[in-house]
C-alpha cells in the first residue's frame, strides 16, 4: 500500500494538484500610486473614502493620503465634502449626505499638491426582489462541509445589474481571551470568509429568477446559526473591479489562472492622465437579510472546538474584546 501511495503522489502531481512550496522572489519597491477605497450606500450613516498609497508587498501599514479635498458630486451638481478623520480616512456627514437609489455620484479628489483624481459617474442601482432564502446541508467532503445558504432573486430587467453579498455568521462565544476563562458578558464570535467574494453576474442571470450561493455556515454546533447577509447592488464598473479581485484571490498558480494584471478601477488622474490610480469608488443600494440555519437534524456530531475543562475554584471571567472576530454589540436581528 505504501508503494501505491508513493505512486499516487506522482499522479497527484500529474493532476496538477500539488507540489506547492514557499518561494522568495526579488521584488522591486512599490511606486507611489494612489489607492482609493470608497463605498457609499443608501444607508443612513457616515460613509468612508480611504485614500492611501501602494505599499511594498511585505509591509503591513499603508501610508494614507492626508490633507486632500475629497467630495462626492451627484447628478444635480450638489457637492458633498468628506472630512478627514484619521490619516487618509475621509468621512461624510451622515445628516447632510444621504445617497438615493437612481442618483448618479462622482468622486473627486484634489490633493494638496493640486493633483485631481476623479471617478467615473456611478449610478445607485436598486435591490433585487428576493423570492426566497434557504439552505442545503452538504457533507460531500469534509473541507467543504456545511450549510450552504442560497438566495433566490428576481433580477431587475435593466442590464448591468450585479450584486454582492457579504455574510457574517454570529455565535455566542463560550470563553473569552483564553480557553480557560469564561466571558464576563454576552460575547459574539464573528465568522466571515473574507477571501470568498460572492458576486452575481448579470450576464449569467439577467432578468430571471436565479439562485445564488451566498454563504456556507460550518457545522460547528447543533444549535441554530445566525447569519446576517448584506446585499449590495453594483454598477458595471464596480462589478468589473470585484470580479477581477475575485479572480486574483482565486489565483492558485495553476494552469487555469489568467496572467495576473493590475485591477483596473473606475478612478483616473485628471491632471496627469498617464498616472495609475488603483481601487474603486462604489455606489450601492444596501439591504440586510437576517437568516438562521437549523442544525439540529444532522445525525453526525458537529466539529467543535475542544474546550478544556474550567480550572477548579471560582470561575474567573474576561471581558469580550471588540475585534474583527468578536463583539459584545448584539448583532442586528439577533433573536435567540
Amino acid at each position: 500500500m505504501k508503494t501505491i501511495n508513493y505512486i499516487s503522489l506522482f499522479i497527484l502531481c500529474l493532476l496538477l494538484q500539488t507540489c506547492i512550496e514557499p518561494f522568495d522572489p526579488k521584488i522591486a519597491p512599490a511606486p507611489q500610486h494612489l489607492v482609493v477605497e470608497g463605498l457609499i450606500t443608501n444607508q443612513n450613516k457616515s460613509h468612508v473614502i480611504k485614500l492611501s498609497f501602494l505599499k511594498n508587498i511585505n509591509i503591513v501599514k499603508a501610508e494614507g493620503l492626508s490633507k486632500a479635498d475629497v467630495r462626492v458630486i451627484d447628478n444635480n451638481g450638489i457637492e458633498y465634502v468628506f472630512k478627514e478623520k484619521n490619516r487618509g480616512e475621509y468621512h461624510s456627514d451622515s445628516i447632510q449626505f444621504l445617497a438615493q437609489i437612481g442618483n448618479i455620484y462622482t468622486l473627486k479628489i484634489v490633493t494638496k499638491e493640486g493633483k485631481v483624481y476623479q471617478s467615473s459617474p456611478e449610478k445607485m442601482l436598486p435591490q433585487p426582489t428576493i423570492n426566497s432564502i434557504y439552505n442545503v446541508y452538504n457533507d460531500e467532503n469534509s473541507e467543504e462541509e456545511g450549510f450552504y445558504i442560497y438566495i433566490d432573486i428576481k433580477d431587475n430587467p435593466e442590464e448591468g445589474n450585479s450584486y454582492r453579498w457579504e455574510s457574517t455568521y454570529y455565535s455566542i462565544k463560550p470563553r473569552c481571551r483564553e480557553l480557560t476563562t469564561l466571558c464576563c458578558e454576552l460575547c459574539w464570535k464573528i465568522y466571515r470568509v473574507p477571501n470568498r467574494i460572492m458576486i452575481s453576474e448579470d450576464k449569467y442571470y439577467n432578468n430571471m429568477n436565479s439562485t445564488m450561493e451566498v454563504f456556507r455556515v460550518p457545522y460547528d454546533s447543533r444549535s441554530s446559526a445566525f447569519v446576517n447577509i448584506e446585499q449590495y447592488s453594483m454598477t458595471t464598473s464596480s462589478y468589473q473591479f470585484w470580479s477581477q479581485l475575485k479572480k486574483q484571490i482565486a489565483n492558485v498558480g495553476s494552469i487555469f489562472d489568467p496572467i495576473p494584471s493590475s485591477i483596473g478601477g473606475n478612478m483616473e488622474c485628471k491632471t496627469e492622465p498617464n498616472e495609475k490610480v488603483y481601487g474603486c469608488f462604489s455606489v450601492s443600494s444596501y439591504s440586510l437579510i437576517s437568516y438562521s440555519v437549523r442544525r439540529d437534524y444532522i445525525t453526525r456530531n458537529p466539529i467543535t472546538e475542544n474546550l478544556p475543562p474550567l480550572p477548579p475554584g471560582p470561575p474567573s471571567c474576561n471581558p469580550c474584546d471588540e475585534s474583527l472576530s468578536s463583539t459584545k454589540i448584539k448583532p442586528t436581528g439577533w433573536k435567540f
Binding site: 521584488i27 511606486p31 477605497e37 505599499k55 511594498n56 508587498i57 495576473p260
Partner: peptide, 10 residues
C-alpha cells in the same frame, strides 16, 4: 506584483 493595498479588508 510591484506593490499591494487593502480593499474592503482584502
Amino acid at each position: 506584483p510591484n506593490g499591494r493595498y487593502t480593499f474592503n479588508g482584502l
